[in-house]
Amino acid sequence: MTSPTAEVRTVVLCQRDDVPDGEARRFDVDGHRIALARIGDDFYAIGDRCTHQNYSLADGWVWPDECALECPQHSSSFDLRTGRPNCFPATQPVPVYEIRTQGDGIAVVLP
């Protein structure tokens, strides 16, 4: 028996130059609150709500050497590759979204 395939779609969030190196921006798309971070030529998309107290991660700081995004409220940081928290007080991971480039557009894959 085959299992049903979940429908996914790709949504362009912005153009490459819309997010400066070492910064993050918030995007709200179809009920998904996404923090898009840029480190050099690499882009990462994670859920924008800190799992400790629901603050916007995009308002925080990008740490390139750790590939992490730090919450501005209580300093929890999240690995941009896995969504896992790197330190307390957050203990639960945030969602991670697959990134796809479409020309100069930066897109995410939504479930």
Score class of each variant (00 low, 15 high):
M1R: 11
T2D: 14
V8T: 06
T10G: 08
V11R: 03
L13E: 00
C14Y: 09
C14K: 11
D17L: 11
V19H: 06
P20I: 00
P20R: 06
A24S: 09
A24Y: 02
R26V: 09
F27V: 04
G31S: 03
R33G: 14
A35M: 11
R38G: 02
I39W: 02
G40A: 10
G40D: 09
G40N: 13
Y44V: 06
I46T: 02
I46Y: 07
D48M: 09
R49H: 07
R49K: 07
C50S: 07
C50M: 06
T51W: 12
S56G: 12
G60E: 05
V62N: 08
W63P: 11
P64D: 09
E66C: 12
E66I: 07
L69K: 10
L69A: 01
E70Q: 10
S75N: 15
S76N: 00
F78I: 01
D79G: 07
R81L: 12
R84S: 13
P85K: 01
N86H: 11
C87A: 12
P89T: 09
A90G: 02
T91E: 14
T91Y: 14
T91D: 15
P93E: 05
P93W: 05
V94H: 06
P95H: 06
V96N: 02
E98L: 12
E98K: 03
Q102T: 12
G103Y: 01
D104A: 08
G105P: 04
V109K: 08
V109L: 03
V109C: 09
L110W: 05
